[in-house]
Amino acid sequence: MTDLTAPRASRAPRALARLARYGAPLLVAVALLASSEGLRLATVNQLTSLLLLAVLAMSWNLVSGFGGQFSLGHSIFVGVGGYATAVILDLLGLPLVVVLVLSGVIAALIGVVLAYPMLRLRGPYFAIGTLGLALAVQGWMLNWDFTRASQGYSIPLDQSVDLLTVMRIAVVLALVAVIVSQLIVDLPLGLRLLALRDNEDGALALGVRRLRTLLPTWAISAFLVGVMGAVVALQNGQVTPQSAFSIQYTLDAVIICVIGGLGTLYGPLIGAVAVFVLRQFTADFAGWASLIEAIIVILIVRFAPDGAMGVLSGLSRLVRRALVRRRRLEASSSTESTREGVAA
């Protein structure tokens, strides 16, 4: 057992930890890709949905968790990505990878254009503003001939992609999302981002520029969500404004991050798994499903406001404290010392 309270981690373990942080997701992804042939189609399909949910939550977490800007407008990027993919596949028939990246880029560009004015708003105003924006866009899309309203824009069947390929794309996308989240935390951009969230005045006073930090983050988030929307469109075979621009996507991201832990690296992943499993479970309760989910969300917010990650770190702190205390007791009893620490 290494000393957990050791103040100084030597260079080697830190490098190892970093390697593990980037390597482990890579390994999991490679393992999934390698074994994907052997998976049942049902598993493939469920895994795709789960991974997409996780990507959505991780991307939203970048802006709203790490960046502290509570966005209620992310559904726009799901829709933009979905439509971009459907339309490009329909009209241009470019290679799939190009189409996906292009969809993300379009979403990111639109994201930057929208964020530029929106980021002038703070706190609840930002949430209301982005929500208004999302609804204005959805209202427009519902009334725009181009989107073919409730009939939807179908991905041409000859261009459609089988579920296994969709899952592989989702695996790669999820990997990218995890790595990007890690990178953002490790890079100076992420430092500035976290600094802004923790204490905006302090960060500004230290020379951090708000827009220069938030805008790239927003663009990255929009890119990932755009590609996620594109994969959703591939999975469903069509896009409709009603579903692709649905506020539900944003709400899902909020719920997942709240359950998993807002502004943590792995919270959205854990939250996505929890929500996905919960939904599989409540699917049998039909009309009660959303009731159960909402009550769980309320209970978590009330009693564990830092989500699963908060509970986990709370537990690990308890364990660590117990270990330390035990060691201290052992030490004091072995030396027969009568001096009890004042720190107790």
Partner: peptide
């Protein structure tokens, strides 16, 4: 590091049990 391991185990386990 430990968190990473936990998270990836969960994802893997889910995939396998489903499979």
């Amino acid at each position: 590091f430990r968190r990473t391991v936990v998270a990836s185990t969960i994802v893997l386990a889910l995939g396998l049990t489903a499979g």
